[in-house]
Design a protein around this nucleic acid. Structure first.
Lengths: 126, 126
DNA sequence: CTGCATCCTTATAGATACTG
DNA sequence: CAGTATCTATAAGGATGCAG
């Protein structure tokens, strides 16, 4: 469980290894660039440079860094074609595709409530 | 649209205001603490201190900061009881509850693939 | 109890340059 | 083209103290 579901007086030491791992993974994917990469990939196979063009505002460094993280966690498969110049293609794995449902939903949600949020910000004092 | 869905040679200046707002909102919610707060609140009403206990590892500062952000965006309602000591309760608004589907799914996903991910990390060289 | 402000440490992210 | 490394600027985050 990613959040505590009990209200006892347990402290950090009582988190099981699985729980802290779950939290670590949750933190990895609950991240702007990771989710945008997953959403951009979808069911397609894209090259590094194509991903960079798809994702507005991502830097070379952030893209590399997050792709390595997603690869490490087995959400993205990296395929290197030994050509000159090199061609590196990225594809979501089955676990990675499992997150598409979430990213699509989050994108839909964002557009659905764009007006609500803009109004709320104004009344909040922006 | 949070990611570009076209492949033309358009540059930053072509992003519409709505698109950059959408990206800003997406970045606000595609964030570890924001999603954990939403998941922790669920359909309940919780006090500041209760939230702090529910969310393992969150600091006073991060919780305050993210609650203000969620409030500003209209995802969380803040109710102050004028008692001594003060009692401040937080509840998800309707747009906020709209994200519960996502957070629940992400939590489920995390547990579903915990084994996959652990194995992947080992074979990656951890 | 909650919130804000402060200081201070660490982490993050951009820019740049260099390699295969 | 893709990746790594280095440097630097800025932001994030923890700890603390004080105020309502």
């Amino acid at each position: 469980m990613v959040t505590k579901q009990y209200t006892g007086s347990l402290d950090d030491a009582d988190l099981t290894r699985a729980d802290s791992l779950a939290r670590e993974i949750f933190s990895d994917i609950a991240n702007k660039w990771a989710l945008l990469i997953i959403e951009a990939l979808g069911d397609r196979t894209l090259r590094f440079s194509e991903l960079r063009n798809e994702i507005e505002g991502v830097s070379h460094k952030m893209l590399t860094q997050n792709l390595r993280m997603l690869e490490r966690n087995g959400l993205v498969e990296r395929c290197v074609h030994p050509t000159v110049p090199p061609r590196v293609e990225y594809t979501l794995t089955e676990p990675g595709r499992g997150l598409l449902k979430t990213t699509h939903y989050m994108c839909d949600w964002t557009h659905q409530y764009l007006g609500h949020i803009e109004a709320s910000r104004r009344s909040f004092g922006d």
